[in-house]
Write a protein that binds this DNA or RNA. Structure first.
Lengths: 152, 152
DNA sequence: TGAATTATTGATAACGATTCTCATTATATT
DNA sequence: AATATAATGAGAATCGTTATCAATAATTCA
């Protein structure tokens, strides 16, 4: 049994829920996806392995995984909620270029302790920290400048 | 003419768009809302003043305001995109309690310069920085503990 | 064991926020 | 004023997500 199965199982037990076959498939597949994924992405990946699983089950299981601390919300892209698994994935900053859609990630090392200090002051217990920055990547910044020149 | 009108107008001109009556109403009303608001909230507030404005226009204008740097995305609540105007509103951190829904805001003073340093390294030009933290506020943390005691 | 209770699931309908379409109207240009 | 272009309102269409519900699986208790 993998680490993440133990964690999920413990969480489910605490909530009086069971680690069913369907939930196990969702869990396993989440850890096979090493990119940000939407509920739909996950559903399709599972379907490629086994059949008969319902999209509804995926939607039902995802929040459980988030609450269990195994999965976190990632940056929202194209109107879809997106997720990523956490194990071996230190928290990070998402830099999303809203022109070409490129997503860069950097670490949260310097910022994390500051947040935790604030949290302590507020007596707030964070489950999920998301630092998302939208803007223009260097490439699209260049393009923009060129276009402006052409306009004149 | 208010400051924000000048800013919006400049942005529109740069894009070859016009500051129409409808856009002016959206703009003005945004600056009358001092809380986080959804597109629907904004639409209703405008309708309470004048009639004949369309929800589609609100949806069409909001991204323009974001790009003009007058409005920013705020924390997503109940599946709705939410916004807030920026003038006189230094960037901040949102702390959302996912149990009672309370939203606390704190400043980004310490963190902002760190982000901008990273941005410089990446040559990324941020338009919108959102630091959202979900978790439990002190009140709900207490409730949780009590409930666990009762369970035993 | 087996009946009764409860949890979980798959299929699909319903929902709701957002986007698209298009005919009409406003605005700018000549 | 005539023409071209941009913007609008109304409502239909889209699509991610949630709710419903009958069927199935797991669990409890007699």
């Amino acid at each position: 049994m993998q680490d993440f199965e133990i964690v999920f199982n413990q969480y489910l037990e605490k909530r009086g829920l069971k680690l069913t076959k369907a939930r196990r498939y969702v869990l396993e597949t989440v850890f096979e996806l090493h990119e940000h994924f939407s509920a739909q992405d996950l559903y399709e990946k599972i379907k490629s392995k086994i059949s008969g699983i319902s999209l509804a089950t995926v939607y039902r299981t995802l929040p459980l995984l988030v609450e269990a601390g195994l999965v976190q919300y990632s940056i929202r892209k194209e109107g879809k909620e997106s997720y990523e698994h956490i194990f071996g994935h230190p928290k990070h900053i998402h830099w999303l270029c809203h022109k070409c859609g490129t997503l860069i990630e950097t670490d949260l090392k310097e910022i994390y302790p500051i947040i935790m200090r604030y949290a302590k002051e507020l007596e707030f217990e964070p489950d999920d920290i998301s630092l998302n920055i939208r803007g223009l990547c260097w490439k699209c910044k260049l393009d923009d400048k060129e276009n402006h020149l052409h306009e004149k």
